[in-house]
Design a protein around this nucleic acid. Structure first.
Lengths: 353, 353
DNA sequence: TTGTACGCGTTATCAT
DNA sequence: ATGATAACGCGTACAA
């Protein structure tokens, strides 16, 4: 610990400056001294002190990545995508879990800012519009969200459009009484809006008894919320959900009430997390390219950094319908024996039977 | 961006030194100037530059966290535990995915070291014994592993003991032909060893046809490996697995061959990831307290840092058997209607039917 | 081609 | 109680 350029310079019999030149590969250095310096570096095991370098350059070659919860299966692949691009460009990633708390999120913004990160990536921010604007105004920010875009550099997952599409799919399948288990983290709820629009555009009324909002988007909480929904509106034959975890909770609630999925109730999710194809019945859902989203938002971050924070860009990502078993569109089940390894019987199915 | 102590000092009409005193709350400062300085700080929105502070102190208040793959469901909760303790102590976490590559892992150690992290946490390191020793010798390190401990500060998950226990469980259930789908990432494979010991101690022979090793511990690869196992040893009535993902792949392989689980083949996993209780049939597995492990290893890291790297400590964590459906120990299935919300029918079951 | 000197923002040791 | 001043390790004009 603690071999500095001074030590190297001393060893190689040159000035610190020359060492710096060799390390950073600029300016003119004679091949002879160059080799001597490299030898000294090797021998002493010198590594440039990035902290000192950052102090001079004002750049830390690191970005903050703020997410609500790494244990939510949506995020690990996003994180991986971010980190993958970051590494390719010599950036490190400071991971920050807000545990869904806006307060915590703001604190992390402060901490990251003090740590002189070159930018902050906000994924699934729980801040309200005003807070988000304020953060975006004071920091270099790239945002990944499924809410209405507020900031200047945003990748927007089309949640409204997605729920419109999947709800329409249920309507096409003949469902008329369709419920929605949403996620209430703020005033705007794009996904629920998409659900409502689909109903209206197909001439169906929006019954407020058909909608419940879960305070958290996890399985347990959703299970309780869905149970309530099914009790207050027993005539429902299909349920759309905020995401796949909520859908799984809803499947469990159906089991709790003795209602079969999809025979009695069709259920659809959102996100297409790995779990979606592993549970029984396999979830019909909207696929979101999570790893790619991570790559995209880090690439966006790089552009924001390059433009010194003045970057404006808005990208839309459209989720894609994946039909599996939970919506009842597949009427036939097939014997397990037909499912040979590598044999793609039907789209993206990995369910266990 | 860029309000420094100089600016604050100027504004408050004091020296930089005094500002520093106020910020860090040491030394004697009169209440009057103290208030003036605080006012200036507030007004200018000053935040101490952590980088500059690090350069002086030699401490960066951040740790590196190296894991094979954040998308492996084992790790998110570990990461959360680490970050939780880290935050409580004012540390940030630099997340590094090695994608299972030892080469990548070593590169990250270098990068982190250059970034002047105060310590490096290695979780599920893929380095061999020699490499790991070398890293531990040159850096402040805390290790979380299920392999044989090599370094001075280690939390060891008792993988050998765990597989001994779960294999014994299968033997008690009457199984005599038991297979193992392992994970071949290095020469030592504690879990497979535990499997073998259980067989031997119960007077059963270890048949090498009954063991296959998957090059990766994910569902797809395990599915292929398990398929091979079931082909080369069709008389097997039970399979132990490296972890839950491998177990799920094995369940899929059984489905591919038309063999029912657990009726024809009993399958057990390891780790008790969330998925384990969600798939059908719900997995019997060894529970590992992942979040707590994350907390433990970060706390260990703090001790290593406090002891200036000379810390020696070895903690063992024993996994705990969780019996669900995949091993066939539960003979009765029960109607879904009996499963009321919050009604704990049997240990930790969340399966969907 | 190579070396000197200054600054990055902060902490810490001295004086005053 | 407060203020100079010297590090911390490196990058970079500028000088030699």
């Amino acid at each position: 610990m603690g071999v500095t350029m001074r030590d190297v310079a001393h060893k190689a019999g040159v000035s610190i400056n020359t060492v710096s030149r060799v390390v950073n590969g600029y300016g003119e250095v004679s091949e002879a001294t160059r080799q001597r310096v490299l030898a000294a570096i090797e021998e002493l095991g010198f590594r440039p002190n990035v902290v000192a370098r950052s102090l001079v350059s004002g750049k830390s070659q690191s970005v903050g990545l703020i997410i609500p919860q790494i244990t939510d299966p949506f995020f690990p692949e996003v994180v991986l995508g971010v980190e993958s691009i970051a590494r390719q460009h010599g950036y490190s990633v400071l991971l920050c879990n807000t545990n869904e708390s806006p307060q915590q999120e703001l604190e992390y913004v402060d901490v990251l800012s003090a740590k002189q990160v070159d930018g902050i990536i906000l994924c699934g921010s729980r801040l309200d519009a005003e807070q988000l604007s304020s953060v975006a105004a004071h920091h270099r920010v790239a945002v990944l969200t499924s809410r209405r875009p507020r900031s200047a550099a945003v990748i927007s997952i089309q949640g409204e459009q997605g729920l419109f599409e999947i709800t329409s799919h249920l309507i096409r399948l003949g469902h008329r009484k369709i419920g929605h288990v949403g996620f209430a983290f703020s005033s705007d709820n794009e996904r629920a809006d998409g659900y409502c629009r689909a109903l209206r555009e197909h001439g169906l009324a929006v019954d407020e008894k058909h909608v419940v909002l879960a305070p958290r988007a996890d399985i347990e909480v959703a299970r309780t919320a869905a149970y309530r929904l099914l009790q207050q509106a027993p005539d429902i034959t299909a349920v759309t959900c905020f995401n796949d975890l909520v859908a799984i909770g809803t499947i469990q609630a159906c089991a709790d009430m003795g209602r079969r999925v999809p025979d009695d109730v069709a259920i659809v999710g959102f996100d297409d997390i790995d779990l979606a194809s592993l549970v029984t019945p396999a979830l019909t859902t909207m696929h979101v390219p999570r790893f790619h989203l991570g790559e995209m938002v880090m690439e966006l971050m790089l552009r924001v950094i390059a433009d010194n924070g003045t970057h404006e860009e808005l990208l839309y990502v459209e989720p894609k319908l994946v039909v599996r078993d939970s919506c009842g569109a597949r009427k036939s089940t097939w014997p397990a024996a037909q499912q040979g390894i590598g044999e793609e019987v039907m789209t993206g199915t990995n369910n266990l039977r």
